[in-house]
Simulated assay, not measured.
Amino acid sequence: MATINPYLNFNGNTEEAFLFYKSVFGGEFVSLQRYKEVPEMETEAKTNLTEDDREKIMHVSLPIGQNAILMGTDVLEAYGQTLTEGNNFSVAIGTDSEAEADKLFNGLSEGGTITMPLQKTFWGSYFGMFNDKFGIQWMVNYDYQ
């Protein structure tokens, strides 16, 4: 069965925000990855990043309840990303299988715009992103672990 979690986008202050959320909710980060740690970024895309961008958060996750995880990232202008109020969050769906991920991704993205096709990732997941036909941002993820 799919789970749904909020995924928040920040303009360079993800670490500050998540340290604050951690102080309120408690717990420990399940994941905290910086852009400099992305193995696929050993290409031109990574060399074009400033030192400041390399230190920014690519992904962080903090369990905030029995069945909820608060997740976030810093948007990077170097990648053409911009942050404006209203696009600073996504609905993240965690699935139990690749087949469920395919079904939900294909169904929800129909008539929308796919921003990252479902694919196997370096972090051990099957992951994709899209905006649905109503303008809502979605992420679909299946963890292989």
Results as ranks from 00 to 15, higher is better:
residue 57 I to E: 13
residue 53 D to Q: 15
residue 78 A to G: 11
residue 54 R to E: 13
residue 53 D to I: 05
residue 100 E to Y: 04
residue 58 M to I: 15
residue 83 L to G: 09
residue 60 V to W: 11
residue 107 G to E: 07
residue 70 L to D: 03
residue 112 G to H: 07
residue 110 E to W: 01
residue 99 A to N: 10
residue 101 A to H: 04
residue 101 A to C: 03
residue 81 Q to G: 14
residue 94 G to I: 08
residue 70 L to N: 01
residue 104 L to G: 03
residue 65 G to F: 02
residue 96 D to L: 04
residue 79 Y to S: 10
residue 92 A to I: 06
residue 92 A to N: 01
residue 55 E to P: 07
residue 97 S to M: 12
residue 59 H to P: 06
residue 93 I to Q: 00
residue 70 L to R: 00
residue 90 S to D: 07
residue 91 V to H: 06
residue 61 S to D: 11
residue 71 M to G: 07
residue 81 Q to S: 13
residue 105 F to V: 05
residue 82 T to E: 15
residue 102 D to K: 09
residue 74 D to Q: 13
residue 75 V to K: 13
residue 109 S to G: 06
residue 90 S to Y: 09
residue 70 L to G: 03
residue 83 L to P: 09
residue 89 F to R: 03
residue 54 R to H: 11
residue 70 L to S: 01
residue 56 K to D: 07
residue 105 F to L: 02
residue 106 N to C: 04
residue 79 Y to E: 12
residue 108 L to S: 04
residue 113 T to M: 10
residue 58 M to V: 12
residue 64 I to L: 05
residue 81 Q to R: 08
residue 104 L to E: 00
residue 69 I to L: 10
residue 109 S to F: 05
residue 72 G to Q: 06
residue 58 M to F: 14
residue 99 A to Q: 13
residue 90 S to N: 14
residue 93 I to V: 15
residue 98 E to K: 15
residue 72 G to F: 11
residue 74 D to P: 12
residue 71 M to W: 01
residue 85 E to P: 14
residue 101 A to Q: 07
residue 94 G to C: 00
residue 113 T to S: 09
residue 77 E to W: 03
residue 59 H to E: 09
residue 104 L to S: 03
residue 81 Q to E: 15
residue 53 D to Y: 10
residue 72 G to S: 09
residue 107 G to D: 06
residue 87 N to W: 11
residue 65 G to M: 03
residue 56 K to G: 10
residue 109 S to R: 01
residue 67 N to L: 04
residue 112 G to Q: 09
residue 93 I to K: 01
residue 66 Q to M: 05
residue 73 T to N: 15
residue 110 E to Y: 05
residue 91 V to W: 00
residue 69 I to K: 10
residue 62 L to W: 10
residue 98 E to V: 14
residue 82 T to G: 13
residue 62 L to I: 01
residue 76 L to Q: 15
residue 52 D to S: 12
residue 65 G to H: 00
residue 89 F to I: 04
